[in-house]
Amino acid sequence: MTIDAQAQSVHARMRVVDTHDDLLMLCARRPVHLQGAYFRETWLPQLRAGGVDVQVLPVFVADEFRPEGALRQTLRMLETGWRVAAANSDAVRICLTGEDVERALADGLIAIILALEGCEAVGTDVELFEPLFRLGVRIASFTHFGRTMLADGSGEDGTGSRLTGAGIDAVAACESLGIMLDVSHLGAASTDHLLELATRPVIASHSSAYSVRPHHRNLTDARLRGIAETGGTVGINLLATFVDHDDHTVARAVDHVEHVASVVGVEHVGLGPDFIKEVLDEIYGPDEDVLLDGVVASTYIPGLEGPSGLPLITAELIGRGWPEDDIRWVMGGGFSRVLARELGVPGSSGVRRDA
C-alpha cells in the first residue's frame, strides 16, 4: 500500500512508540554469534522504515519451554536482547529509565525496553522480579492466554478468577521496583482486581476495544476507563483477528483508535501492534493457518504485517481529519508521558496483601 508524501512527512515528525513486537523470539532462535547481524539485516530496516523511536521487546516463553524450562528461556531471551543491543550500539540502546529513553533518542538511537509477556519464569517466587529487574525487565504482564501461578489469562475467563495471593504480592513487588504493570492478556476478573490494587499507572501494551470487536483479548469501556484513571495508556493491537472478525483493514484498526480516544481521551491511546507474521511464518510456515486460542492468528491487515507499515496509521488519521497534535499522542506521545514518569522508578507500593 502506498502512502502519500504529506502523510510520510507528518509521520516523520512523530515520535513513534511500539509497545509490542515479538521480534526477540526470532533473534533468540539464531545462533548466538549471528543474533546481532540478524537483527541488523532483518529488523532494523523495518523499524527505521516505520519511523519507530521506542520499541518494547517482550519475552514470550513458548509452550515447549513450560513449565520447567521457562526461567532458562526467559534468561536466554533477555540475554539475546542485550546481545543484539551490544552488536548494534550505533543504532539501538536498551533503556532502563525514562531518562535513558530521552538520552537514546537525543543520540539518534532507537530506545529498546525489555518486557515480560507472561511470568512463567517467576512461578510463585515473587522475589525473582528483583533479579529480573537487574537484568533489564521494566514491564510485566502476568499471563498469556492461559493460567500462571499469578493470574489467569483471558482465555480462562470462564473461571472468573482474580489474582492469586502470589499475584497480589507480584503487584506490590513490581510497583516497588519500578516494573510497569501490563494488563494485556490478563483475564477480565484479574484485570479488575489488578486495577483495584494498583497505586501506579497501569498500561495495556497490546489490546484493542471490545466495543468495536467483541473478543476476550480486547478491553471493555469500563476497563479502558480504569486504566486511564491510573494514568496509564492503551496500545491498540493491530493483529487482524483482534481488529475485526472479517474487516481486516487499516480503517477498521483506526476505528479502535478513535473509539478508545472517545472513551478515555487521546492522551491515553497508543500503538501496540503485536507484529507476529514473521514469527509464525518461520515457526509454522507461511501457508499454515495458525490457531490462537481457537482463532486463526495468521491473518494480517494488508500493509500492517510489520513495522514498516506504521505510517499507514498516520495516513488514515490524517484522512479522517485528525489534527497533527492529536496524532502525535497516538503515535507515541501517550506512552512517552507514562514512560518518562514511571519506567524503572522505584516506589513504595501501597498494595494491600489481603485485598
Rank of each mutant, 00 (worst) to 15 (best):
Val269Trp: 00
Ile318Phe: 09
Asp274Thr: 08
Ala253Met: 00
Glu305Val: 09
Val264Leu: 04
Phe335Gln: 02
Gly272Thr: 14
Ile313Cys: 06
Tyr300Thr: 13
Pro286Gln: 00
Glu282Ala: 15
Glu278Lys: 13
Ile327Met: 05
Arg320His: 06
Glu288Thr: 15
Val260Ala: 13
Glu324Pro: 06
Ile301Ser: 01
Leu317His: 02
Val266Thr: 13
Ser336Arg: 01
Glu324Ile: 11
Gly334Asp: 09
Pro323Ala: 00
Trp322Ala: 02
Asp287Trp: 02
Asp274Trp: 02
Asp287Cys: 00
Ala261Ser: 09
Val330Thr: 02
Glu267Thr: 14
Asp289Ala: 07
Gly334Asn: 09
Glu324Gln: 06
Asp293Phe: 11
Glu278Ala: 15
Pro323Thr: 09
Val269Pro: 09
Glu278Leu: 14
Ala315Gly: 04
Val264Arg: 01
His259Trp: 03
Gly333Ser: 11
Pro273Ser: 15
Glu258Arg: 12
Glu267Gln: 14
Asp293Cys: 12
Gly333Cys: 14
Asp293Ser: 15
Val296Thr: 15
Glu278Gly: 12
Val330Ser: 13
Val266Met: 03
Lys277Asp: 07
Ser298Lys: 05
Arg320Asp: 07
Val263Asn: 01
Val257Lys: 10
Glu278Val: 11
Val257Glu: 00
Pro307Arg: 01
Pro311Leu: 11
Val330Arg: 06
Pro323Phe: 04
Thr314His: 15
Gly285Glu: 07
Pro311Lys: 06
Trp322Lys: 08
Val330Pro: 08
Ile301His: 01
Glu267Leu: 08
Val296Lys: 10
Pro307Tyr: 10
Glu267His: 15
Glu316Val: 05
Leu312Phe: 06
Leu310Arg: 01
Gly334Arg: 09
Ile301Ala: 05
Gly294Gln: 09
Glu288Val: 15
Val257Gly: 10
Val290Gly: 05
Pro323Met: 00
Asp281Leu: 11
Val269Ala: 03
Gly306Thr: 10
Glu267Trp: 12
Ala251Leu: 03
Pro307Val: 02
Leu291Asn: 08
Leu292Asp: 08
Val266Pro: 00
Ile313Glu: 13
Phe275Met: 03
Pro273Cys: 09
Val254His: 06
